[in-house]
């Protein structure tokens, strides 16, 4: 006889299997596609690590709305300010996530939004400064329920 506990365990593993199968069949970007998208924005410039702070929860229950904050250390003056912040996700169907453009009137280089993540992956933020330099920060995120890739509505 099947106990209630056995039934629940079996049902749970079945549901997990279905979710995995549906995610595996769908199109997604690769780290190479993300590099290409980054090069389109940055050009040949060197990207250095630091100054940028990407805040995103390391463990995400629901990939449909993941809080994201990007801030950059900068005095935000006319001569030294952050021109843009770009966010990329390597395993989303499209690696581009957000491009935010600032000028010296922002006071602080900081943007808050909510994003979708299709899979556990590395999220990258890149800041473009007024002196032409690029700075970056990356965070590894584990996603349990993915967004974007549902097969059926």
């Amino acid at each position: 006889m099947t106990s209630r506990r056995d039934f629940l365990v079996a049902a749970g593993s079945l549901a997990g299997g279905v979710a995995l199968a549906s995610a595996a069949g769908a199109a997604r970007a690769t780290p190479a596609a993300m590099q290409e998208a980054i090069r389109k924005v940055v050009g040949e410039a060197q990207i250095r690590r630091g100054r940028v702070r990407l805040e995103i929860p390391p463990l995400v229950d629901n990939g449909n709305a993941v809080p994201l904050t990007v801030s950059v250390e900068s005095p935000m003056t006319q001569v030294d300010h952050v021109k843009a912040i770009h966010v990329f996700a390597e395993k989303n169907p499209l690696p581009n996530v957000l491009s935010a453009y600032f000028n010296a009137r922002a006071g602080r280089a900081r943007v808050v939004t909510r994003i979708r993540l299709a899979d556990s992956q590395t999220v990258t933020a890149i800041a473009e400064l007024s002196d032409g330099s690029f700075w970056t920060d990356t965070v590894d995120v584990v996603v349990t329920l993915s967004a974007c890739l549902e097969e059926f509505v």
Binding site: A89, V97, R110
Partner: peptide, 13 residues
């Protein structure tokens, strides 16, 4: 881009 969640929130200064 499509990776922004439904009902987009944007906060800045």
């Amino acid at each position: 881009h499509p990776a922004i969640a439904a009902n987009p929130l944007l906060a800045f200064t």
